[in-house]
Amino acid sequence: MQKQGIYTIQENAPLTREVYRMVLAGNTGAITAPGQFVNIRVEGCYLRRPISVADWDDNTITLIYKVVGEGTRRLSRMGGPGAALDLLVGLGNGYDLDCCGKAPVLLGGGVGVPPLYGLAKRLWRRGITPTALLGFGSADEVFGEREFCALGCPTMVATVDGSYGHKGFVTDLLREAGMRYDYFYTCGPEPMLRAVYDACDCSGQLSFEERMGCGFGACMGCSCKTKYGTKRICKDGPVLKKEEVVW
C-alpha cells in the first residue's frame, strides 16, 4: 500500500549526459515489488513526477532517471545538505517473480533498464540468474552493464548506432545470441515493448509508461485497454502480463 513521506537526498549524480542516479533515505516499507514507482513532488511543478524504483533496501531508495523536461531538470539540480523530497512510495503493480520460469531474460531499453536491475537482484536472491539484454542509442548513453555483470547475469549490450556492443536492438541480441529462455521481463519505450512482445514466444511481463495525473489510481488519466478490461497504468500497471496486452 502506498505511503507518503519525506526522503532526504543522499546522492544525485549523472551516470551519463542525461541520466542521473539519485539515492534517497527514508522509509521503504511500502515497496513490495520491483517495477513499482515513486511519485515525486518537484518544487515549481504542479504535478508529481513518476519515476521507477531501480533498487531499494531497508532505508534507501535508488532512482535512475533521464532528464526529459522541466521537472526532471529541476530534480537533477537538487541535492546538498538537508535536501529532501516529498514522495508517494510503493505505487503500482510491479513485476511478479513467481512465474519467472527457469531461465528468464530481461530486456531493457534506455531508462527502462533501471527497474530490471531491482528485479534481477531479487531473482538472484531466489537462486535464479536471469540474462540481461540492454539497449541504448549510442555508447555515451550506456549505463548499468557493470551492475548486471556483478550479479553474475550474462549481460549483452546493443546500441542503435553500433558505437558500443552489438549494432541494433535488444531483440536482435535475442535472435543473434540464439539463447534459450523460457520467460521474459521488459521495460522500455513502447516500440521496443512491441518488438519484444512479437519476438518472444514464451510468456512474460511488460512495464508501460504513460502521462499520469495522480499516480495512485484516482484520476483515470493513464487508462489503457487490455484483454481483461480497462486498466490504469499507474495502479493496475505499470507491469502487465503479455496475455492481457492489447496493442
Binding site: Y46, R211, G213, C219, C222, C224
Partner: peptide, 14 residues
Amino acid sequence: PTPRIAECDGGMLN
C-alpha cells in the same frame, strides 16, 4: 485516448 493529462503553471489539463 491517451495522453489525457498535461501540465501548466499552477495547474493541469485533463
